[in-house]
Simulated scan of single mutants.
Amino acid sequence: MSGQHHNARDRIAPIQRRKKIIRAKEMPDETGLAMRSIWEQVSEGTLPAPIQIGPRAVGWLADEIEAWREEKRRERDLRLAGGVLRDDLKDAQALPRRQRGRPRKDDTSIDAFK
């Protein structure tokens, strides 16, 4: 009998997830992005736009965020499999990388100013 109870719960769970609204403060945990990046991606159209849920409150539909996550997984899998997106990854790797840490004072930089 308990097996039937779990099956009924499993059928309801996807319906509840579709109706869930993710508030702005929860979005960094849901996406792994900082709020600034979230809003940038919304304005670029690469992340679903939020819905207005109050005069000063917005939220994202959980099923739209889940679809966004799945799209990101597919993009990753294509890159790893050598698919179409592999060239995009090579282009990103060819870009110059910013040095990490504090700039060091070395003798060559001092000589340039003499």
Score class of each variant (00 low, 15 high):
residue 71 E to R: 13
residue 19 K to H: 14
residue 46 T to E: 00
residue 16 Q to A: 11
residue 33 L to Q: 00
residue 61 L to V: 04
residue 101 G to S: 01
residue 17 R to Q: 10
residue 100 R to T: 03
residue 14 P to N: 04
residue 107 D to G: 07
residue 97 R to N: 11
residue 36 R to P: 06
residue 11 R to T: 10
residue 27 M to E: 04
residue 105 K to V: 02
residue 114 K to E: 12
residue 89 L to H: 12
residue 111 D to Y: 13
residue 40 E to N: 10
residue 97 R to D: 01
residue 1 M to W: 03
residue 14 P to V: 09
residue 73 R to T: 05
residue 49 A to D: 05
residue 17 R to S: 08
residue 13 A to D: 14
residue 72 K to R: 15
residue 53 I to M: 07
residue 91 D to S: 10
residue 23 R to C: 10
residue 87 D to R: 05
residue 7 N to R: 07
residue 41 Q to H: 13
residue 107 D to P: 08
residue 56 R to P: 01
residue 2 S to E: 13
residue 52 Q to V: 05
residue 60 W to L: 02
residue 25 K to S: 09
residue 44 E to C: 08
residue 73 R to Q: 09
residue 103 P to L: 06
residue 42 V to R: 07
residue 18 R to M: 09
residue 101 G to L: 00
residue 102 R to Y: 07
residue 96 P to M: 01
residue 77 D to Q: 13
residue 112 A to Q: 07
residue 20 K to Y: 08
residue 90 K to P: 03
residue 102 R to V: 03
residue 46 T to S: 12
residue 60 W to S: 02
residue 102 R to S: 12
residue 44 E to A: 12
residue 49 A to Y: 05
residue 42 V to Y: 00
residue 109 S to C: 07
residue 27 M to G: 01
residue 98 R to H: 11
residue 87 D to F: 11
residue 55 P to W: 09
residue 56 R to N: 06
residue 48 P to G: 00
residue 83 G to Q: 13
residue 78 L to A: 10
residue 113 F to H: 13
residue 78 L to P: 00
residue 108 T to C: 09
residue 43 S to N: 15
residue 33 L to A: 00
residue 97 R to I: 02
residue 84 V to K: 05
residue 51 I to Q: 14
residue 39 W to L: 00
residue 9 R to E: 14
residue 61 L to P: 10
residue 81 A to L: 15
residue 41 Q to V: 08
residue 54 G to P: 03
residue 104 R to C: 02
residue 109 S to R: 14
residue 74 R to M: 10
residue 65 I to H: 01
residue 5 H to Q: 12
residue 45 G to C: 01
residue 113 F to M: 09
residue 18 R to D: 14
residue 96 P to K: 02
residue 93 Q to T: 07
residue 113 F to P: 02
residue 100 R to E: 13
residue 46 T to Q: 11
residue 42 V to N: 04
residue 32 G to R: 05
residue 113 F to S: 14
residue 103 P to C: 07
residue 38 I to V: 10
residue 78 L to E: 14
residue 110 I to C: 09
residue 10 D to S: 06
residue 70 E to W: 07
residue 100 R to I: 03
residue 69 R to F: 07
residue 68 W to T: 01
residue 46 T to L: 08
residue 71 E to Y: 08
residue 46 T to G: 03
residue 112 A to T: 12
residue 29 D to Y: 04
residue 28 P to V: 03
residue 59 G to T: 05
residue 10 D to H: 06
residue 27 M to W: 02
residue 39 W to D: 01
residue 81 A to F: 04
residue 31 T to S: 11
residue 14 P to D: 06
residue 74 R to Y: 04
residue 83 G to D: 04
residue 57 A to Y: 05
residue 39 W to E: 03
residue 9 R to D: 15
residue 36 R to T: 15
residue 9 R to G: 03
residue 19 K to M: 11
residue 30 E to W: 15
residue 21 I to A: 03
residue 64 E to Y: 11
residue 114 K to S: 05
residue 51 I to T: 07
residue 31 T to F: 00
residue 47 L to R: 00
residue 96 P to Y: 04
residue 22 I to P: 05
residue 96 P to V: 02
residue 63 D to Y: 08
residue 32 G to E: 05
residue 77 D to P: 03
residue 106 D to S: 10
residue 70 E to Y: 10
residue 45 G to F: 02
residue 10 D to L: 13
residue 34 A to G: 12
residue 107 D to N: 03
residue 78 L to Y: 12
residue 58 V to N: 00
